[in-house]
Design a protein around this nucleic acid. Structure first.
Lengths: 346, 346
DNA sequence: GACCGCTTTGAAAGCGCATTCACCCTAGAT
DNA sequence: ATCTAGGGTGAATGCGCTTTCAAAGCGGTC
């Protein structure tokens, strides 16, 4: 910048103005400066600017380190876990990017590794005006410290720290409605729920919704899912379906899976076993991934507005940036059931 | 930082060392400092650090502003164009993020709007150690200036500036091999190629490959694609298929589409018209999107290593960061044909 | 007890920009 | 011609950190 100033015969203040507030500089002067900048290959330093102006124009996102990087050797490069997990963070990224762009922000993303002072979280926190965190990504203790200095919004999980803004998806409501639909509209009674890791807030919330629906309908309310899978992948979904089928007693009238991946896997497994869907058994998922619409029979599921999740995160950040003192906001984004072929609709 | 120093009774230099080089500080001192930092909610300023150390630890990506943000009203939120376009940048982002993480970098992403001094590009450029650009995203003139100051790698398109590193996908080779397969292995002769916008380097490169294959086989070499579509969407693919069908003369033995989206649309259209694939006609796509594997018949296509594109971009950046003087590198990533049902294989 | 070699800490000088504040110049008003 | 407003510009200060360079502490040695 000093060079540009010298070359164009002005002071650095004027150069700065040319970039920050072009209107306040006379046309002729501005031209000279820009010309010099071009000749010198001048690129304003975001760091210096940020330091001086105390703002970065960047928002951040920390998401979990889902896929094992070492597993990438996988030639097909689309293992089940990958598909499911990445789609999620990809969509959030996309949503945040869109919204951020609308507000003139860029987006800094990083999958958090370990915590500690040298973590990526710290790097992100130091370089943004505010950021979003996927639940269970960053140690609460770190967040506690960081959130005292800049806006943080917690996504898709328990808020953990109560002065944070946070956004969740109406998991319980969605599953409850889905189960209600099966019970009331299709007259099914024996429902089996396949859950995931008890540590997964999403899967647990969905199970809660399932229980509510059972209660609402006067059916027995299960204590735990009929089955749990560790990874919630297609493969595990297929296995779960077979386990349920082989479990002596009567075959359930419907299998509700805690996510689409598992449900899709189940669909295939059932087809292999000659069990017709939805004639013999209904199947539902959760998430509304693209695949759910394409499989045959198309999968009844609950569409999760993941992109909106990202967009809302940005909106909340922007708002808090505008007013640091407003009370913490907690949003629950509505989900919409998609009744398709696999439950007997469509 | 000054506060932390004061509170823990050391100088700011020591505080800095605690973060930058913990080993060089006595354990007791370090504890005191970290304790104070925790109490004060200290978050190191990335800007100041970047300014002082002249490096950011961040890599960037500029991609085109594909989807029209205003079109988001679209409730289903997955129009054709969206699907295709976003998958592409999403995957690059994912690839870059992974590779960046491996090297300890975070990733700053921004879809470029207009150029000019206040563009997002400028913002990105000023905040990263180096960045990647999707071809035709940033005005060459801007890149010219920026690339004199920091590493830039050009992705998936003509290099434009010859001192840049760049990475492309072997579009021509892929299509050539695909066409060769149809001609030699399946004995088909009347091939029709459906291209896209003449401005699309990818679509054009694929058509070039197609022509080469024709030449190789001694078939007439077409001057232009049999048909072009503007958006290369499913809908347009369907329409293209019908147009080709209705074009009097003899029906082609195979339709080669410049991307999977169009091919999938065509598949549906042909089904509606009662034309069997692959018995009556072979169909191929390009890209290897997930959908291509799921449709029935499964689509013969060419898998594009988009994620690797992103990863390579990061590798090149890292390498150039290590040695600014090495000669510009130009990589062509190999593609792999996926022979599936729609051409008569599998 | 003076001396030596380490390790640990401090002082100070920027890093590149935004931003007052003061100043000068020009143009219109008087 | 003098005065008044602004618009346009420059000088100077500080943003929060890294990084020499020096000084100080600390064990041991001779």
């Amino acid at each position: 910048m000093y060079d540009v100033a010298e070359r164009s015969g002005v002071s650095i203040a004027t150069v700065s103005r040319v970039y920050r507030n072009p209107g306040s500089v006379r046309d002729r002067t501005r031209e000279r400066v820009l010309e010099a900048a071009r000749e010198l290959g001048y690129v304003p330093s975001g760091n210096a600017r940020g330091l001086a102006s105390r703002t970065t124009g960047v928002l951040g996102l920390c998401f979990p380190d889902y896929a094992d990087p070492d597993a990438e050797a996988d030639a097909e490069a689309d293992s089940d876990a990958d598909d499911a997990a990445m789609l999620y963070s990809d969509q959030i990224i996309r949503g945040m990017e869109r919204a951020a762009r609308r507000h003139g922000y860029a987006l800094l993303i990083a999958a958090s590794l370990e915590g500690g002072p040298e973590s990526l979280v710290a790097k992100v926190a130091g370089r943004v005006d505010g950021f979003a965190v996927l639940a269970q990504t960053v140690p609460t203790e770190d967040l506690e410290v960081i959130s005292r200095r800049l806006p943080v919004v917690m996504l898709a999980g328990p808020r953990e720290i109560d002065h944070l803004d946070h956004v969740v998806v109406a998991n319980a409501d969605g599953e409850r409605e889905l189960a209600r639909h099966l019970i009331e509209d299709h007259g099914l009674r024996r429902l089996a729920f396949v859950g995931g890791d008890p540590e997964s807030p999403d899967a647990e919330a969905r199970f809660r919704g399932f229980r509510q629906a059972c209660g609402d309908a006067g059916l027995p309310v299960p204590e735990a899912p009929d089955l749990r899978t560790a990874m919630m992948t297609r493969a595990e979904g297929a296995r779960a379906a077979e386990t349920l089928l082989d479990r002596g007693s009567e075959r359930p009238a419907a299998m509700l899976f805690a996510n689409d991946q598992m449900a899709v896997g189940a669909l295939r497994a059932l087809e292999r076993r000659g069990v017709r869907v939805p004639e013999d058994i209904a199947v539902t998922g959760f998430d509304g991934i693209p695949l759910s619409r394409i499989v045959r029979p198309s999968l009844t599921t609950v569409r999760q507005p993941i992109r909106q999740l990202g967009e809302q995160a940005v909106e909340l950040l922007v708002q808090r940036l505008a007013d640091a003192n407003r009370p913490p906001v907690s949003l629950e984004l509505p989900v919409s059931p998609a009744h398709r072929a696999s439950c007997g609709c469509g």
